[in-house]
Nucleic acid binder design. Structure first.
Lengths: 149, 149
DNA sequence: GCTCATGAGTTGTATAGTACAACTTATAGA
DNA sequence: TCTATAAGTTGTACTATACAACTCATGAGC
């Protein structure tokens, strides 16, 4: 089909390894949206990941999501508004004051997360099926480190 | 839940690690677009990653990109059309026949890639600055494996 | 107490990215 | 020759996103 130049991963220099990391991360990033849409068609990818994050940290503000994902606050505002309209999150005034609102996952939201999460994890388990526990933990650790905790 | 996943005493821990992997991958996926837009504002994220891929494999068809990134062929068609209009790729009939067109990076495309890639790698190097070579290679290997190469 | 700066959020607007469906066209096989 | 298949294009609709301009609460300085 095309003239691929075979390069063994082991013979690459440091910079090439970094480039390979970048390339693989890009492939992943391009795929996750599609995959996500298939796994939980009820909810758009972005809305789902935000709902999931709110659940994971036990409640947060919109601006926290914006920082985590490096998104504009207007984007988050619309997504959160959508989540609220669907009855998946509730908003209450931030005890810390200001205009802040604390977002909480509602019962319906938790239910949806549970359902979608189960399928998502099943898919992931399938993908990691033949990985050793050591490799999984190492992968998680490296990703966390890459993302800057 | 799939019945193909073997239930073992380790399953619970494995699942937690898998969920952590998922979460970290999601954070990454959410960030890369923004980051990419900052690194090469001349070219949209998607167009850039396609140009980069065409370069990396030394030429391919639109349908190959669609498979790699799990995108609809119409999406790829438009992106490739954009790249051609900008003079960054050229199209020639696929020697293998059919309606296929082999995409090649032009001189201008290579130049742009070189420039953007330099900045991108600098950013990545910064991020991986305190990683050991072993960790880098391991990370690249795990990502490649995750992406199912 | 006013005034103003700050921070959180919302809304208007423009654009990129994407899928799906319907179409075109080139080749290979029956 | 006819038909199935594969690659690509185009019409259409919708999501995701940024940027800019706005609203509103709070707290600091006077």
């Amino acid at each position: 089909m095309s003239a691929k130049i075979p390069v063994s991963p082991d013979t690459r220099t440091d910079t090439d390894v970094a480039a390979e990391v970048q390339r693989q991360l890009t492939v992943f990033a391009r795929r996750i949206r599609t995959q996500s849409a298939q796994l939980h068609p009820q909810l758009p990818f972005v809305a789902y990941s935000m709902l999931s994050e709110i659940d994971a940290v036990g409640g947060c503000r919109a601006v926290d999501l914006a920082h985590l994902y490096r998104l504009d606050k207007s984007t988050v505002s619309r997504q959160v508004g959508d989540l609220e309209r669907r009855g998946l999150v509730s908003r209450s005034p931030d005890p810390a004051g200001g205009r802040g609102q604390v977002l909480q996952v509602t019962g319906a939201g938790a239910e949806l997360l549970d359902d979608a999460g189960r399928r998502q994890r099943a898919e992931l388990e399938l993908r990691l099926a033949d990985w050793t526990d050591d490799d999984r933990q190492h992968f998680a650790r490296l990703l966390r480190r890459y993302n800057g905790d």
